[in-house]
Nucleic acid binder design. Structure first.
Lengths: 338, 338
DNA sequence: AACGGTTGCGGGAACGGTTGCAAAAAATAT
DNA sequence: ATATTTTTTGCAACCGTTCCCGCAACCGTT
């Protein structure tokens, strides 16, 4: 495994490595056009590829951004990464992605690895609203810019961008009620995810607004996965309580619930309406298609990248800011018309 | 942004950087236990994180493996990455993932980036069976070990691991026939993906075996995405030809077809059986659940990593080998019992 | 006391680029 | 022609780490 270096090129052409370096960097101020052309051509011919490690060492930055996400089963995070990569690449940054698997220990390891790689900044969606807060704070005080997206994090002085979960819930549940539903089950997300609480608040807010009674029995822990959602649904159905709609914290859980319901021959949406927050392309792939509040993924990625880049450009007197985006209600076949 | 270096530690303790380096590397042969303890403790206290760029430069390897995948909408590739990351991390390797978006130009850029980062090896699923073959060959002759997984690549002397597509198709289509289906539509994959041809061969083989006529009109280009699958299905239905089953190249395309069929009130599987190759968790999320040949993702990742690691350990007199795994037919609700 | 062997540590040269500064070469002005 | 400026080039230091080599201190033997 022998890579060609600028010294190899310099030697082959009888010039100094400085000149080669400048030529390859396109420094038109300091190198004669024909020399430049010659060097670039030779580099191409010899198959030269710059050694990033050497560059990173010399310049004191890596031109890479770390992205930490909690899971890879939903396509939301992958879509986010795609958009973010597009934005960052345009600004000359590479990305390195790390998955915490919804585990705070793995999350710490991810962060550790990113620090070792000397990433210039971190885009992060936490797996726990508070558990690693002091670590984030520590990293940021060490001068590593961070922006948190999608999942809210508490007690950290940092830029964040997420959707207005409470409002999103309000929109969605209101649609449910206006379409005639009265007994709405809420598949609650895990307590350690901040957004779960907000979505529950939104749900309760609408009930109050419409003077409907709030019954805690209709709020069941639906987890994150399809399995958990299915189990929660099954348990609820067995409890014998009447219901005419399910509003879920997340897509996968609702899909699990949907399977259970369909297996029991509930008709959707005639017998039960189904909807959730943070839907992805999956919602359109199932039958009936699922009504959901869609995350503005592209906008979220753009905003997160912008915030991060701004913070990296002017690290001094930078003020953390929280951007709240609004989700878009998309009504599909799993809910009745209002 | 100031990171602490081994020099900082050495200075603080009045020892040489060599000793610090050795202590941190756990070189018990050459450093006294108390010194070691002292150095490690100080390093921890000062928040030392090794600079990977410096290490990569000095040692002539990066301890990272590049993984190139064609898309991120299916969870298959993400699952593969998860398994591969697990294996590689155990061997002390980081991973850097790049997405080609089913585009040969982007694929070249991905490879270029990985070379710049001096990855020690590449795990790759191509977006075109042949287009970039000479580039792969070039990279390998430059001493970069590569292993190709899932998607077959032609005319390249390299290790490959994929499922036996023809046999997988045979298994699946046979089940269809044994359950009573006679007019089976095949949603063909894109021509530039080698596996598509193999799966078609499998389909034809079974027809021959059962002495059923082969009608080219029943083989339609179904593309990769749900949209393409839906369009293909719609076109076929409009053609007026009778059919009682759809066997698809890939999950997403079949899901697209399924939507169309369900919208038209075809009953599944009573009117039309549905199945595909390379199913993921998605198959169990939809209703009715989808019969599929499941890829042995973990096994494929393990094999690919093993092959790559072996090749990296003994680059000389290494012989490329192709490992063919067999898929597992999982019958679910979208097909009738045999 | 002199000897070889081990142990623990420091010095310094790499690794492959970038970049400030000075010097050489070329272009322009006097 | 020489003086001056401008363009183009080379030298050398540096980034943080590893690792080869050498040195000293200490050990037990003779």
């Amino acid at each position: 495994m022998k890579y060609v270096t600028i010294m190899d090129i310099a030697h082959a052409l009888g010039v100094s490595k400085s000149t080669v370096s400048r030529a390859l960097a396109g420094d038109v101020q300091n190198v004669k056009p024909e020399t430049m052309e010659l060097i670039c051509e030779t580099a191409r011919r010899m198959g030269y590829r710059r050694n990033e490690a050497a560059v990173n060492l010399r310049r004191q930055h890596s031109k890479t951004i770390g992205i930490v996400i909690p899971e890879v089963v939903t396509s939301f995070f992958m879509n986010f990464i795609q958009f973010a990569q597009h934005d960052l690449r345009q600004k000359g940054y590479r990305t390195i992605i790390a998955v915490s698997n919804e585990d705070i220990t793995q999350e710490r390891e991810c962060l550790d690895m990113l620090v070792q790689c000397r990433v210039d900044g971190i885009l992060m969606s936490v797996c726990h609203r508070a558990a690693n807060a002091s670590l984030y704070q520590d990293l940021m005080s060490r001068g590593i810019p961070m922006v948190f997206f999608d999942r809210r994090v508490d007690g950290v002085e940092a830029s964040q961008v997420h959707i207005d979960d409470a409002s999103a819930s309000v929109y969605m549940v209101e649609k449910l009620i206006r379409s005639g539903c009265r007994k709405i089950v809420h598949l609650l997300g895990p307590e350690h995810i901040g957004n779960a609480t907000d979505r529950l608040h939104g749900y309760r807010e609408v009930l109050e607004k419409f003077k409907l009674p709030y019954n805690p029995q209709y709020v069941v822990s639906g987890g994150l996965s399809a399995e958990e959602g299915a189990q929660a649904m099954e348990r609820f159905v067995r409890s014998g309580l009447e219901f005419d709609a399910v509003f879920g914290f997340t897509e996968t859980a609702v899909l699990g619930a949907k399977s259970v319901l369909q297996k029991m021959h509930y008709r959707i949406p005639e017998d039960v309406s189904l909807c959730c927050i943070s839907g992805t392309a999956l919602c359109t792939l199932v039958h009936p298609t699922l009504s959901a509040v869609e995350q503005p993924t592209a906008e979220m990625a753009d905003t997160a990248c912008r915030l991060l880049l701004e913070q990296m450009e002017r690290p001094v007197h930078f003020k953390p800011q929280t951007v709240v985006l609004s989700g878009e209600v998309v009504l599909r076949e799993s809910t009745k018309a209002v």
